[in-house]
Design a protein around this nucleic acid. Structure first.
Length: 305
RNA sequence: GGUGCCAUAGCUCAGUCGGUAGAGCAACGGACUGAAAAUCCGUGUGUCCCUGGUUCAAUUCCAGGUGGCACCA
């Protein structure tokens, strides 16, 4: 029997959690979360982690499993999930993954090229240079070390320039020489289920969810994490707006409105990314029967018996 | 009731000394290989309140109306 990974994906707030529980129960399997923020144990309200009783109703992985103080990225996620899957496939043929972190989904499905771990000191020094010398200086250096990538990269995006340069400086090789553009083979079959709603309905859900977060104590959660605001893990919708409020830049009402607006924006960005993936079959969250029927057909079709 | 001010994009507002208009936010689209809930790029969506008048031409000037705000009663 081949191994399967069913991936339930969609924009934030669309209702993936409830559906994932039903699917996991139906297939009697575990859920791997694919969410770059729910993975941090210090956050719960602002990242919309499911309630404890829901988490306990089905085995979950990669929810609140790592610390905000830990350096994390899509590659680490890829490796850790692959290791976990190998273990889980000893007992199960079908595993469910759910979440909306686009890059993390792709890293797991297609892999991400092997690169050396970026040295923290180098990153800091390059960020300081970006600050003091401006992006032009880093651009020129990248053109020297990796003209190919220089011609391809978005020259106005500091993060792209910075990272490429990091790799060039660390390895003495052009960053583009690490980019294989070859999807990695996976020892399991992937079924991608997309969940979406009418835009207006989705936005209402997102707005209401933010109100609910505030009612549950988001402000206090953010206040507790305020000292760590410089961490990348806290550069997160729902927290950075409240940090602005704590710093006195904006009013509490503005912070709340900004959280709603930025959540909507994030949902749109997710949809832009998902739209170009032809492997996704789309449903609405209420189509449980259709989703199961479709998934069963896929499972059957891939299985010669 | 009187006087004054205002009425322009979904919202807050700018502007046109008369030639049918533009910012911020929102909205919409796109990029994306170790920071990805990150980062970056693009798009103006409009009975310029209504009705007349002046004019070759009115969102702009004039009159009246309607609505809002302020002050005086």
């Amino acid at each position: 029997m081949p191994k399967f990974l069913i991936i339930l994906l969609g924009p934030t707030g669309v209702g993936k959690t409830d559906l994932s529980i039903e699917l996991a129960k139906y297939y009697n399997t575990d859920i791997i979360s694919c969410d770059s923020r729910q993975i941090y144990k210090e956050m719960r309200i602002g990242t919309a982690v499911p309630e404890q009783r829901i988490l306990e109703s089905v085995p979950h992985h990669f929810i609140r499993s790592h610390s905000i103080h830990e350096y994390y990225n899509a590659s680490k996620f890829e490796m850790e999930v692959l290791t976990r899957l190998e273990l889980l496939y000893n007992k199960k043929d079908i595993i469910l993954m759910t979440g909306g972190s686009m890059l993390y989904i792709d890293a797991l499905c297609k892999g991400i090229d092997d690169l050396p771990e970026v040295d923290a000191e180098l990153r800091t020094s390059l960020m300081n240079r970006l600050e003091s010398e401006g992006i032009e200086s880093l651009r020129n250096e990248l053109r020297f070390y990796d003209p190919d990538y220089y011609n391809k990269v978005d020259l106005r995006n500091p993060k792209r320039i910075l990272h490429a340069l990091e790799i060039c400086l660390m390895t003495g090789l052009p960053y583009s020489s690490f980019r294989t553009n070859q999807p990695k083979k996976r020892p399991f079959i992937i079924i991608k289920l997309g969940i979406n709603l009418d835009r207006e309905v989705l936005y209402n859900r997102i707005n209401q969810r933010v109100d609910k977060m505030f009612a549950e104590g988001l402000e206090q959660e953010a206040r507790n994490l305020h000292p760590f605001r410089h961490l990348n893990s806290l550069n997160t919708v729902g927290f950075r707006e409240l940090f602005e409020y704590f710093d006195g830049t904006i009013s509490p009402e503005e912070a709340k409105e900004k959280i709603k607006a930025n959540s909507r924006k994030y949902a749109r960005k997710q949809l832009t990314w998902f739209r170009r993936d032809p492997e996704i079959t789309w449903f609405t969250p209420d189509m449980k029967e259709e989703i199961i029927a479709f998934t069963n057909r896929q499972l059957q079709g891939q299985n010669p018996e």
